[in-house]
Amino acid sequence: MLAALRRKETYQKYFKSLKFALYCITHPLDGFWDLTHEKRGTYAAANTILFLTLLIRILKLRYTSFIFITVYWEDINIFLYIASVAFPLAMFVIGNWGITTLFDGKGRLGQVYMASCYALTPYPLIQFPLMFFSNFVTVDEAEFYSALSVISLVWAALLFVAAMGQIHEFNLGKNILFIIASLFAMLVIVFILLLFFSMISQGVAYFISLGKEIMFRL
């Protein structure tokens, strides 16, 4: 591992795969096909993009002009804020993989994750400059900000659809069907998690009360 870090090719590969994200967002079909089939993407780059997305989402709170975002700091929990992106993403990746494996999806779990992260690229790419731009506009010019902000989200969403189709080698209809199915899979995961945690806490509470009772009787 350390030996790999010392080699120059590792970095070259990393930067090349990071740069490939720019190709992906402009040529989604071609790009996401090559991402896994030609092995032009790396996990390191995918993690970087996800990290940047989360980082910029947090930075936005502080550095966007108050005209667009007013933050009630007392209510901000940074971990919850990170989880609000990372948790749905993780659930989507797992749900999507779980469903598509049953129906001829060619993508593996890691590939779904990688493609999802690559699809997020427009968000940091547009939101970061936008964050500074927001401090130089007035209320009358707010439309520019909102439009660009919406573009970054819509673009990322479209990339998401394209990415899933290319990873699993689905046609458009099947792809959209399975994205919707993945959303239901997410609901199922949430349900099971809730069930799991409430069961665990009930179980723990049972043994604690049992212990208390025994202590009381002794």
Binding site: I67, T70, T138, V139, D140
Partner: peptide, 17 residues
């Protein structure tokens, strides 16, 4: 900015800019 008055802020900022 302290009291989140965006309309007045924009008026002032426009002139300042």
């Amino acid at each position: 900015e302290l009291k989140y008055d965006d309309d007045n802020y924009s008026k002032a900022y426009k002139q300042y800019r």
